[in-house]
Amino acid sequence: MPKPGLIIRRLKPLVFAAGLAPAALLAWKGYQQDLGGNPVEFITHATGDWTIRFLLITLAITPLRYITSLPDLIRLRRMLGLFAFFYGTLHMLTYVWLDQFFSLSSMAHDIVKRPFITAGATGFLAMVPLALTSTAGWIRRLGGRRWQLLHRLIYLSATAGVIHYYWLVKSDIRMPVLYGAILALLLSFRVVRTLRHKPKPRLAATPVPTGRA
């Protein structure tokens, strides 16, 4: 039995192929003129769905490492996060190009006036620094702690993404609620873990103030 680390290293190309599969399928359907009556809407929805899914999958790595005792899963996380950024970029480009035709004024108007666009733009912009600093060089330059702190922006990104989706749907809220529930579960894992490993408060570091506040 090879070591888990080796298995995961071998899995990497497979995960990479799987991550590209939705884009490949979309391209194939486009080539086949099989994107339904409103291809732009189809592309927008597909790329948006996969952005949220990859954000959630990326966020699932840490809990999975803990539950499965497979710390080497971390080797997949950067790639999964970059796939979220990849689909997020396609999603954003679809909007900028095929929906707004690069009209800056119209987009600015949208971002200010339409809360679901504001949320979507927030989610995307929060991903940009994470993608830019995803290299080993940047981890070194920033230092592990600061890098980790910065990369907690993914919590904001995923939350904004789910809100974006929730505000978009007209009445059938099942999918955004499902994604929201998964996100809540993944984030609460982190909350519980942090509370459990809370460093003990130092005794008598500062005197407790008394009297009226």
């Binding site: 339904g36 009556g37 409103n38 809407e41 749907v169 007209k170 009445s171 059938d172």
Partner: peptide, 14 residues
Amino acid sequence: TSYNNYYEFGTSKD
């Protein structure tokens, strides 16, 4: 006839 809003038969167009 294949891109419809008829929520009694599902909320997706297809």
